[in-house]
């Protein structure tokens, strides 16, 4: 499988995001890949709209439905939402969309901060395999992947994104930032 350049997928995603920007839009990235993407998107938005878009960071670890099975995923990456979410239109940003369970956890967490006017989902890649009635609204690319495989987005020290496919086993999944 020839993997696309994630920076090009980001162009795709940005072209879908840009027309949706208005005064009450806020962005919320999901750790870790979603934060990288959000920061890159914010740079472009800043250039095109010449203003700061309110944005926050979300760590879904405290809302995951696999906590009882896999335990607490530990990392010092606290959720930080520096604005009142009530009545805001929120665009959630994540790197890979798979089962939809991370999105479910993210929505639950957001609603503990208040009552947003709407929540949309932007992802770099939809790999197929949703297990919940949740689908992304903006997608960089649709790239179906087999169940035993997983995409991994990484960022080098220069801030450049790259994409790889890893063969996932249940234990390899544990703790890695893969699209579970």
């Amino acid at each position: 499988m020839i993997l696309p350049d994630p920076e090009q997928l980001l162009d795709q995603l940005y072209s879908q995001l840009k027309p949706r920007i208005h005064d009450d839009i806020t962005l919320v990235g999901i750790y870790t890949g979603g934060i990288w993407l959000m920061e890159k998107l914010l740079q472009r938005l800043q250039a095109d709209f010449d203003r700061d878009i309110p944005h926050g960071k979300l760590n879904t670890a405290m809302y995951r439905d696999d906590y009882a099975r896999r335990g607490m995923k530990t990392a010092a990456q606290p959720t930080h939402i520096p604005f009142d979410v009530t009545d805001k239109h929120i665009i959630l940003i994540d790197d890979i969309f798979y089962t939809g369970r991370t999105t479910r956890a993210a929505i639950n967490e957001l609603f503990d901060y208040g009552r947003p006017a709407s929540v949309q989902l932007a992802v770099l890649i939809n790999r197929g395999g949703a297990e919940l009635p949740i689908r992304p609204d903006m997608v960089g690319a649709e790239l179906p992947l087999q169940a035993h495989q997983a995409f991994e987005l990484s960022m080098n020290t220069l801030g450049r994104l790259s994409l790889s496919v890893i063969e996932s086993t249940p234990s390899a999944n544990h703790g890695a930032d893969v699209d579970v």
Binding site: N59, A61, M62, Y63, Y67, M72, T74, A75, A76, Q77, P78, T79, H80, N108, E109, F111, D112, Y113, G114
Partner: peptide, 23 residues
């Protein structure tokens, strides 16, 4: 270190409208 890093995530729970997580 795991405990201290995890605790970082819980500090902000008290700053929210719903001061509870479902773990």
């Amino acid at each position: 270190t795991d405990i201290l890093d995890t605790a970082e995530n819980f500090v902000s729970v008290t700053e929210r409208e719903v001061k509870k997580v479902p773990l």
